[in-house]
Design a protein around this nucleic acid. Sequence first.
DNA 1: CAACAACCTAGAGTGCACTCCAGATCAACC
DNA 2: GGTTGATCTGGAGTGCACTCTAGGTTGTTG
Lengths: 122, 122
Amino acid sequence: MTTTELTPAQMADRTGVTIDTLRYYEREGLIQNVARAESGHRRYSHNDVLWVEVLRCLRDTGMTIDQLRHYSELGAQGDHTEPERKRILLEHRALVERQIAERQAALELIDHKLSYYTGESS
Amino acid sequence: MTTTELTPAQMADRTGVTIDTLRYYEREGLIQNVARAESGHRRYSHNDVLWVEVLRCLRDTGMTIDQLRHYSELGAQGDHTEPERKRILLEHRALVERQIAERQAALELIDHKLSYYTGESS
DNA sequence: CAACAACCTAGAGTGCACTCCAGATCAACC
DNA sequence: GGTTGATCTGGAGTGCACTCTAGGTTGTTG
C-alpha cells in the first residue's frame, strides 16, 4: 500500500476519530468520495485526513452535523459556493469568539469562588 | 410576595433557565432545599438565583449533571468538604483553560481557511 | 363563584451524536 | 487452505440533557 492511502484503522489512528464515527460522517455526507480498494475496503487520502481535521475542529467548537453536512456539500459543489462557505466560516468564527468570551467570564467566576477557599487543598 | 421570594416563572425569567429545567435540576439534586409556599408552590430565594447562575456557568463550560450533583451535594454537607470542592473547581478551571486554547487554535484554522477566499462575500 | 393562568407530580418522549451489533466478505499468516 | 483479524452493510441501541404530557391543585381576577 502506498503511503498516501490509509486503511480505516490507520485513518482512525491519524485523526483520533473512531472507525465507526468515520463511517457515520460518510453516511451523513460530511466526508465525500472516499476511495475504495478493489475489495471494497475504504482507502483514505491525505486530503481526507486534512478534511477530517477541519471537521473535528468545527465540530469540537459547536458546529452541528447538519451544518457540517451543508458546508461539506457546498465544498463538493464547486467554486461558485465560496461566498456561502466564507459566510459560514465567518459566522462560526463569531460563535467561537463568543465561546471564548463566555469561558473567560467563567474563569473569573471560578477564581472568585476559589478566592473564598483557604489554601489547604490536597 | 416579598422581593426576595421568586415564583418559578420569575425564577425562569431571572436566570434564563426554563421552569422544566429548574425542576429537573432540583430532582437531580443540583438545587437543594427549595422553599415552598403553604400551597406547595416553590419559592426561590436570592441565593437560589446566585446558585443557579453558578450551575449554568459550570454547565455551559462542560461540567456534566453528575459532576454538578456531586459538587452540589458537597456544598450541602458543610465546611469540611471545602478542600474537595476547591479541587473540583481547580480541575474544572483547567478544563476551561484547555477549551479556550482549543478555541483559539480553531480561530487560527478558520482564519487560515478564510485567507484563501477573496473578499466577495455577501 | 366562574374561568383562566400558574403550579404540582410522575413519568414518558425528544434530539443529538455517536456507538454497537449481526451476519457476511476480504486479507494475511502458518 | 484454514484460522484469525480487518472490513463491509444496514440497522438497532446508548447516553446525555433536557423537554413535554397528563391529570390534578392552587391562585387570581371580574
